[in-house]
């Protein structure tokens, strides 16, 4: 059974559809990148997948169940989501922030159990932020903070991990590190979908690609097939010999 199955998904902000009749599925171990020009609906798509925004028609199934019918607590155990940037005025420590990934499992009232601490510890280890555990998230660099929220998502122990531009605002070293981490998670059996700004990054471990061309047109398939210069040039409106294409 696919972890995520999308059928005929349609959404528009105004009269013109942004996403139209979109269908694809992800299985355990898939690492999909979502590519496309600005305003083609990449970020919106992720929010439709988790039900944070409501689609006008179509179906999103998580683990075989219609996502719109799953209550938030259960949804958070099936799919985890990392926003492109999360900020708060309050000085939560890295450990507290990662532990909040356990909200759906721990409930609102009780304290954290050993299993919650272990899951958070493992997530921090996996993302390489164990040494930052007691620091305030507001004292970290953008890249470090991104890793904290990826760790929070991992602590949810969901089968599907969605990330909105996890590498934006980061330098090349961080970009490569985060892509390597996501590829590793894919190999461990998670289904991963990440919105990426630069097609070249998809070469770092993605096996599937979803290319949104804007206005509802899209193509979905194997990474090697989707990332041909012809397709990318058409999607981004670039000449085929542009040095920006991978």
């Amino acid at each position: 059974m696919p972890v995520l199955k999308v059928t005929g998904l349609t959404f528009s902000y105004g009269p013109r559809p942004l996403i139209q009749g979109l269908s694809f599925e992800l299985r355990s171990g898939d690492f999909m990148c979502v590519l496309g020009p600005n305003g083609s609906g990449k970020s919106t798509l992720l929010k439709l997948l988790t039900g944070f925004m409501k689609a006008s028609s179509g179906s999103v199934k998580l683990g075989g169940k219609e996502a719109a019918l799953i209550e938030p607590g259960r949804l958070a155990r099936l799919a985890a989501y990392v926003a492109s940037e999360t900020s708060t005025p309050y000085d939560f420590s890295v450990r507290e922030t990662v532990l909040l990934g356990r909200t759906a499992r721990a409930g609102f009232w009780r304290g954290y159990r050993a299993e919650d601490g272990a899951a958070a510890g493992l997530a921090m280890e996996e993302t390489g932020i164990t040494a930052l555990a007691e620091r305030s998230i507001n004292t970290l660099s953008t890249g470090e903070r991104q890793l904290v929220f990826i760790a929070q998502a991992l602590a949810q122990e969901a089968g599907l991990l969605l990330l909105d531009e996890p590498t934006s605002h980061l330098d090349l070293k961080y970009k490569a590190e985060i892509m390597a981490l996501l590829a590793r998670l894919g190999r461990r059996g998670l289904a991963v979908a990440a919105v990426l700004h630069e097609p070249a990054l998809a070469r770092l471990g993605c096996n599937k690609a979803l290319l949104l061309n804007g206005g509802g047109a899209y193509s979905f398939g194997a990474e090697s097939e989707m990332l041909s210069p012809e397709r990318l040039a058409a999607a981004y409106g670039l000449p085929i010999d542009s040095p920006l294409l991978p």
């Binding site: 938030p72 259960r74 999360t86 708060t88 909200t103």
Partner: peptide, 23 residues
């Protein structure tokens, strides 16, 4: 106090809170 964790999640923003399982 019986919903302290929901309040902490909200303090990270409603988008983050939603995805942590809070309505």
């Amino acid at each position: 106090m019986a919903r302290w964790r929901a309040l902490d999640a909200m303090a990270l923003g409603s988008e983050n809170a939603y995805h942590l399982g809070v309505d």
